[in-house]
Nucleic acid binder design. Structure first.
Lengths: 116, 116
DNA sequence: TATAGTTGTATAACAGTGTTATACAACATT
DNA sequence: AATGTTGTATAACACTGTTATACAACTATA
């Protein structure tokens, strides 16, 4: 058995990117809003929540609970990427690019061919 | 309920790309070899097989059985992409690019920051 | 003609990821 | 006290990925 890092699912991948994009830290609702803004589709909070937990278990996220400020409200759990997460993101980026290498034009040609 | 095409899983995505890359048609073993050549990792035939079946059920692949030629051997089941498959590939490509837009440099910077 | 080897198809079982429904906790408003 | 809002949390289920295993058709070799 080799020590192997499992690949991320697409949704996990997306959640990590949104946290990174939001700045250093994000909590669940921020991630949901960021994802919706970027995809144009509705995103369920619970789905993001479960994914945040699983990513934490796998060592890709660290979290801290921030108590409500002076304005009151509910405490929030903020997540930030670990170095392992950035590493796996970079790797999966390379993987993706190599899979698609030269395929963009080929897909377009195949598409035209299929309509003629 | 809107008529919605489910997103592809990453492995499904990869299988479609490999068939497209191999030319117009491929059968299971060809896909396995193509994937191994591209990723450098071993790929289980059964995994590819199940995925080919599922992609066919979803309307992304069409298949035909080709009897053994003069040299003999086992009959092969060849698969080719449907227009729907090319369409979903193109869409998921756009989706991916928009998710990563501007993130490559940001990931690099976050990475450096985390080591300082 | 047995026996073993090769290639390719096929299915079942299970683990991992994605989605939905639901509950709950803390605070604000009326 | 009752209601609304925001955010956390869990359970259940469907879908995707992986592994183990069986089987079918042919080849080679003794």
């Amino acid at each position: 058995m080799t020590i192997e890092r499992r690949a991320l699912g697409e949704f996990e991948h997306q959640v990590l990117l949104c946290i990174l994009r939001n700045g250093s830290e994000s909590y669940s609702v921020q991630v949901v809003l960021e994802m919706e803004a970027r995809t144009g589709k509705e995103v369920a909070t619970a789905g993001v929540f479960v994914t945040l937990q699983r990513l934490k278990e796998k060592g890709y996220l660290e979290d801290r609970v921030v108590p409500p400020g002076e304005g009151g409200g509910h405490a929030r759990r903020y997540f930030r990427l670990t170095p392992a997460a950035m590493c796996v993101l970079a790797e999966s980026r390379q993987h993706y690019l190599s899979l698609w290498e030269g395929m963009e034009t080929q897909l377009e040609q195949a598409w035209k061919r299929s309509r003629s």
